[in-house]
Write a protein that binds this DNA or RNA. Structure first.
Length: 399
DNA sequence: AATCCACAGGAAGTGCTGGGCG
DNA sequence: CGCCCAGCACTTCCTGTGGATT
């Protein structure tokens, strides 16, 4: 296929009308099945329109339940209504996962320049305060995936932000904390907890039927007519429903399936396209994470991988992993990290979902963690193989 | 009922990076 | 220039513990 043909095919796609409408950060004009949450959030935040400080809000809900979309949607509407008095700052705490970065990001919204490293935290807070004082508005700060911040750094920043109004006369600050960890508040200082949780909002998962409805509406915007039928939509909805009813995943699969169909030059999306899309998403997720892991993390993962294929009956425990890891490290000729560190690495891997780890007690034979792979072994292999050191290591072991 | 294994995982500290500020 | 800052990857030292075996 020539380059012209590829471009030509893309320009006059038989599948897409407007591909952007399926991208993850697109917020549609209507958010079906979230009316209750929209109205509640709007009524909580409404005082900002008159220039008074709304209550802080805490939003719970699993991934892909529309928390971020609803929040952005409501704030956008408010800003349209009162562009002079209302301002909002959306900060994702997964990307900005340190106290410093969150404050620096916030300062940027207020128009204060903060270098990305070097300053003392207290200094950043001072400058942020000065910046806020120069303004006259209600600033609504959205801290998305806030659990990432608190678990790693503690709640110092939150404490500062909940009390920031005491030091301000012209501007006001409200907080919206979003998390998908329902037990999150346990980590919080009591004062922060009560202040942040002035209002709470829970986002229940979508039902399969609701997912299907959302998909149908979105497909209408993004795809040409007749490209998907109900059977395909139902299938996508069913897959997502099994995964905690994650709507983002549902849209992701639909997009990928549409991409595959488009690339093949098909005129409709079939169940096979959906199946391929699902596999590809699953694979990419794992492979991408593995590729970017630091060396020792890869080595630990390689140990688990090798153990799981050598003796499938044997339970894989921390001690076994550490022995294998030392063996691998020896072959490469680098110094091993301590077992304490490996224990942390196993936990890190567990959090990504690439492995599953569970503490169990073997009675007399101690207390340990049993580990298993959380994704297909070939995906792990593919991820590890992209690293030259790991590649030669694994190929040697297989002989 | 007591013991004791094989770790789990907390606390504190080190050395390094990449940057301030005066 | 010298000193300070935050963050990260890691070490050192440590206390805690579920439950099969004695």
């Amino acid at each position: 296929m020539s380059i012209e043909e590829i471009f030509e095919r893309y320009v006059e796609s038989k599948i897409f009308k407007d591909r952007e409408k399926l991208l993850p950060d697109y917020v549609p004009e209507e958010l079906p099945h979230r009316d209750e949450q929209i109205l509640k959030l709007a009524s909580i935040l409404a005082p900002a329109l008159r220039g008074s400080r709304p209550s802080n809000v805490f939003i719970y809900g699993l991934t892909g339940t529309g928390k971020t979309a609803v929040t952005k949607y409501v704030l956008r509407k408010m800003k349209e209504k009162a562009p002079q008095t209302v301002e909002y700052a959306y900060i994702n705490c997964r990307q900005n996962n340190t106290s410093y970065r969150v404050l620096a990001e916030l300062a940027k919204h207020v128009g204060v320049k903060i270098p990305f490293t070097g300053l003392a935290l207290g200094e950043v807070m001072k400058r942020l305060l000065q910046g806020l004082e120069r303004r006259r508005y209600v600033l609504i700060v959205v801290l998305d995936e806030i659990d990432n911040l608190v678990k790693r750094q503690g709640d110092d920043v939150l404490y500062f932000l909940t009390r920031v109004n005491e030091n301000l006369s012209s501007s006001k600050v409200s907080l919206i904390g979003i998390t998908n960890d329902l037990k999150f508040t346990e980590f919080l200082d009591a004062r922060v907890k009560s202040s942040l949780g002035e209002e709470e909002l829970v986002f229940p998962p979508y039902s399969a039927a609701q997912l299907e409805d959302i998909l149908r509406r979105r497909a209408k915007e993004a795809l040409h007519e007749g490209v998907v039928d109900d059977e395909v939509l139902r299938r996508v909805a069913a897959i997502a429903a099994r995964q905690n009813s994650d709507c983002r995943l549902a849209l992701d699969i639909l997009l990928k399936a549409a991409d595959i169909a488009d690339r093949e030059g098909a005129s409709r999306i079939t169940l096979e396209h959906v199946e391929k899309a699902r596999n590809e998403i699953e694979k990419n997720l794992a492979v991408d994470i593995i590729k970017t892991m630091p060396l020792h993390v890869k080595l630990v993962l390689a140990s688990i991988y090798l153990l799981s294929r050598s003796d499938s009956a044997r339970m894989i425990t921390t001690g076994l992993i550490y022995d294998k890891y030392k063996e691998l490290v020896g072959k490469v000729g680098i110094e091993p990290v301590t077992s304490r560190r490996v224990s942390d690495i196993i936990n890190e891997l567990d959090m990504t979902g690439i492995i599953n780890a569970k503490v169990i007690s073997l009675g007399r034979y101690g207390r340990t963690k049993v580990v298993s792979l959380g994704v297909p072994a070939r995906n792990v292999e593919e991820g590890l193989m992209s690293d030259l050191i790991l590649r030669s290591l694994i190929e040697n072991m297989e002989e």
